[in-house]
């Protein structure tokens, strides 16, 4: 898929992953890369940007083995952003799909 289109929506995907609960970079990278075709690294610039916007916050937590992990938490502002942008995206997708699908069948009907 075109990387420009993908880039814009990945922020929202990361917010959605955090909606289920706090998580750390490596875990989020895996969850994202399993579903969407992106490099594991992609999640880190996004997390950084989201943190600087205040839609996610971070804290350190001890892990069972190894050094403490940096966890990401969806803030209230993040939840609001997610809710409104998710609705927008779903609506937009519906509209785009309608155009794309009608384009196909409509063209045939005209003949």
């Amino acid at each position: 898929m075109n990387s420009q289109i993908k880039k814009g929506i990945l922020d929202l995907c990361v917010l959605a992953l955090l909606e289920k609960g706090d998580s750390y970079g490596y875990d989020l990278a895996g969850s994202l890369a399993r579903k969407v075709e992106v490099a594991d690294g992609t999640v880190y610039p996004i997390l950084r940007k989201l943190a600087s916007e205040g839609v996610v916050s971070t804290y350190l937590q001890e892990s069972q083995n190894g050094p403490p992990r940096k966890y990401y938490h969806l803030t209230d502002a993040g939840r609001r952003k997610l809710d409104s942008e998710r609705d927008e995206w779903i609506k937009f997708c519906g509209e785009v799909n309608e155009i794309l699908e009608r384009g196909e069948t409509g063209g045939k009907a005209d003949e």
Binding site: Y24, G25, Y26, A29, D40, G41, Y44, L47, R48, G66, P67, R69, K70
Partner: peptide, 10 residues
């Protein structure tokens, strides 16, 4: 630091 952490987890 965050990328190093990624390596260590992996």
């Amino acid at each position: 630091q965050s990328i190093e952490e990624h390596f260590d987890e992996g």
